[in-house]
C-alpha cells in the first residue's frame, strides 16, 4: 500500500469500466431495435387502426407501395417529399407496368402486390381512384394496410 500511494503523482483517474459497460449495453439495445426494412413508412400517413391487421408472414415478392396523406396527395416513391396528383400517378404506374412487362416472364403483373397505405381521414373515393389507376395499369393484387392495435378501432373518431 505504501508503494501505491507513493506512486500517485500521476493524475488520478476515475474508473471508466461501469460507464463503458452501460454505453455498450445501450448501443446493443439500439442496434437490435433498429429496423431498416420499415423505411417505406411515411410519417405523413396515419393508418387506420384495426385489430385484425397482421403483418404478412412472407414478404411480398415485388411490392409497390402507394401512399396517400390526409390531404390526399399521393406518395409513390417512399421518402419523396413532393406529392403526386392522380394524373401523375397514372403515368408513373403505366411506366412501371411497361417496365415489368418488358422484363419478361419471371414476374407477371398479377403477381405484383400493390400496397395501399392511405391516411385514415382520406376520402374513400380518392383512395379508390388510386386503386383504379393501378388497375388500369394492369395490377390486380392489392393489400390495404392498417395499423395493428389491441382494440377494434371501431370507436376511433379523432
Amino acid at each position: 500500500m505504501k508503494v501505491v500511494s507513493a506512486k500517485r503523482r500521476e493524475v488520478s483517474e476515475g474508473d471508466m469500466t461501469p460507464m463503458i459497460d452501460m454505453v455498450f449495453q445501450l448501443i446493443a439495445f439500439f442496434m437490435v431495435l433498429i429496423n431498416f426494412s420499415d423505411i417505406d413508412q411515411d410519417q405523413r400517413v396515419h393508418l387506420p387502426k384495426s385489430e385484425l391487421a397482421k403483418p404478412p408472414e412472407v414478404a411480398y415478392e415485388k411490392p409497390i407501395t402507394l401512399q396517400m396523406t390526409a390531404d390526399e396527395g399521393i406518395i409513390l416513391n417512399a421518402g419523396a417529399s413532393d406529392l403526386l396528383s392522380i394524373e401523375d400517378l397514372r403515368i408513373a404506374l403505366m411506366r412501371q407496368s411497361q417496365v415489368i412487362k418488358a422484363q419478361g416472364d419471371d414476374i407477371k403483373l398479377s403477381d405484383v402486390t400493390v400496397i395501399i397505405r392511405a391516411d385514415e381521414s382520406a376520402r374513400h373515393g380518392k383512395v379508390l381512384e388510386m386503386v383504379d389507376a393501378a388497375q388500369q395499369a394492369g395490377f390486380e393484387t392489392f393489400a390495404f394496410r392498417g395499423k395493428q392495435s389491441q382494440d377494434s378501432g371501431f370507436n376511433s373518431r379523432e
Binding site: 393508418l47 391487421a53 403483418p55 404478412p56 397505405r117 388497375q135 390486380e140 392489392f142
Partner: peptide, 16 residues
C-alpha cells in the same frame, strides 16, 4: 431510432 408500430394488410384481389 424510431418506434414503429407493426402494420398489417388486408389482401384484396381486384382484377380490373
Amino acid at each position: 431510432f424510431k418506434i414503429v408500430e407493426p402494420e398489417g394488410d388486408f389482401n384484396v384481389r381486384m382484377p380490373p
